[in-house]
């Protein structure tokens, strides 16, 4: 007889953990995919993979970056496998609720729009860093880049957003 699962990997605690983290995971996937329906598919696949691999998660505190990593890989895999069309930056409409947009902070809305329009190579590490809490070394490892390349991408991502925030762009880096 198989021993009963214990700790995080038990079915019920693990399910609760996934339920709790699902909104953050979906938000992360939305920013990566710029398309909610694709993001929901990514999250669905992520949760299934996480469920199958739940024995690997030893520390519940590490669940968030663990899930985000799975989601990022799943997102990349989805694009490789399905050859999904890339999103035309001029037609990005992910933030499309006009009622909420007018209710909220217009500057924040503009900033969201600018993040949406960042090229994937800038947006992905930025979202991993700010929303996912990954260090530059972790991002480099995950994206298969040097840490210097990650620093450059993050610098350029923020530099593009500075003007939206009313700041002068900094001199570009080599």
């Amino acid at each position: 007889m198989k021993p009963a699962p214990r700790g995080t990997t038990g079915a019920a605690p693990f399910t609760r953990l996934l339920e709790m983290l699902r909104p953050d995971l979906l938000r992360f996937a939305c920013w990566l995919a710029r398309d909610r329906s694709v993001a929901e598919d990514v999250v669905q696949e992520t949760l299934i993979r996480a469920w199958r691999s739940r024995e690997e998660l030893k520390d519940p505190a590490a669940a968030r970056p663990w899930l985000f990593t799975i989601a990022r890989r799943e997102h990349a895999r989805l694009y490789e496998r399905k050859r999904l069309p890339t999103v035309d930056v001029d037609s990005v409409e992910a933030l499309g609720d006009p009622a909420l947009a007018s209710e909220g902070d217009a500057a924040l809305h503009d900033l969201r729009g600018a993040i949406m329009q960042l090229p994937d190579e800038y947006r992905e590490p930025l979202v991993m860093q700010v929303l996912g809490g990954f260090s530059t070394a972790e991002i480099a490892g995950e994206l298969g880049l040097t840490q210097a390349a990650v620093l450059t991408r993050l610098f350029r991502a923020r530099n593009r957003l500075r003007t939206i925030y009313g700041l002068e762009p900094a001199e570009d880096v080599e």
Partner: peptide, 23 residues
């Protein structure tokens, strides 16, 4: 300036899920 931008950036990224168009 960058730290200030980052605070806004975090707020922007932590967008309510309802703001992402429903499929």
């Amino acid at each position: 300036e960058t730290v200030s931008l980052d605070a806004r950036l975090r707020s922007a990224l932590e967008v309510p899920l309802s703001r992402f168009r429903q499929p």
